[in-house]
């Protein structure tokens, strides 16, 4: 695709959204049989699965921590998730995303309850359209709750950016490619504390503030959808 002349026309973006509009978000909890907890997230054209195993015995043993559980995260993209086939296995990008994802999630977990154990979070991107790490964090957070891992709160995540000098929420791949700025963010919604923040591009002071405002509002909305996904799986249903 060639760069369109305008990314926003008459207040509408390429896919018809207004600047502060998130793509449709669908979250389903508990969709895998073997995993202790799992979730499936669709954010626009992103399709992401997360699974949690644990707390379980840590191997190798010398990596056990005597007074706490260890959290491990692995973010991975399917070879067919992007236009040009991605070679299987970790690359520098996925290693970095795995690290910041782990750090985004770790502060909400009561890891000290499970000495010597490990909690594994696996995130698999099946179809990618920008914002996969945010979709992955939203999925991982629901999967952790679905696994019964005690948490202080959920973690909700979304990207904000700048295209055509306008601050927009939740960029698509085209917007990310042709826009000037991308800023993924994750937060603990109840306390409004940021646990992940990355940015590349350019923001003025005012734009940065505006972008944070959009992201905080969207995370509130995502938080509601995450809780709803858990309620739907566990709600007491009346006998038919």
């Amino acid at each position: 695709m060639k760069k369109p002349e305008k990314l926003i026309e008459n207040g509408k973006r390429l896919d018809g959204r207004v600047p502060d509009e998130m793509r449709p978000l669908k979250i389903e909890a508990g969709i895998l049989e073997r995993a202790d907890g799992s979730a499936y997230v669709e954010l626009g054209a992103n399709k992401v699965l997360a699974a949690v195993y644990g707390p379980r015995e840590m191997h190798p043993r010398h990596r056990q921590q005597p007074d706490t559980a260890v959290l491990r995260c692995r973010y991975n993209m399917a070879p067919f998730s992007v236009d040009e086939r991605k070679r299987p296995g970790p690359d520098r990008r996925s290693v970095e995303i795995s690290k910041v994802t782990r750090e985004a999630l770790e502060s909400v977990l009561f890891l000290e309850l499970y000495p010597r154990s490990v909690i594994d979070v696996f995130i698999e991107v099946l179809q990618a359209d920008a914002g996969t790490r945010t979709a992955g964090i939203n999925a991982a957070s629901v999967a952790l709750a679905d696994a019964g891992v005690p948490m202080r709160d959920m973690v909700s995540s979304i990207a904000v950016g700048k295209i055509d000098d306008t601050i927009v929420l939740d960029l698509t791949k085209d917007e990310d490619q042709w826009g000037t700025t991308d800023m993924p963010i994750a937060m603990v919604p109840r306390k409004k504390l940021v646990t992940l923040l990355q940015m590349d591009g350019h923001f003025t002071k005012e734009e940065f503030g505006q972008a944070l405002g959009l992201a905080f509002k969207a995370c509130e909305q995502i938080y509601g959808i995450q809780r709803q996904a858990l309620r739907e799986k566990y709600a007491i249903k009346q006998e038919k």
């Binding site: 895998l32 049989e33 073997r34 054209a45 399709k47 399917a78 070879p79 067919f80 998730s81 992007v82 236009d83 086939r85 099946l126 179809q127 990618a128 359209d129």
Partner: peptide, 22 residues
């Protein structure tokens, strides 16, 4: 999977496998 040229999700009981073509 729309990012693949072809794809299929197969379930055999609780086993789930997805295949993608590039």
């Amino acid at each position: 999977i729309k990012s693949a040229q072809g794809s299929a999700l197969v379930k055999v009981g609780k086993t789930q496998v997805v295949a993608g073509i590039k």
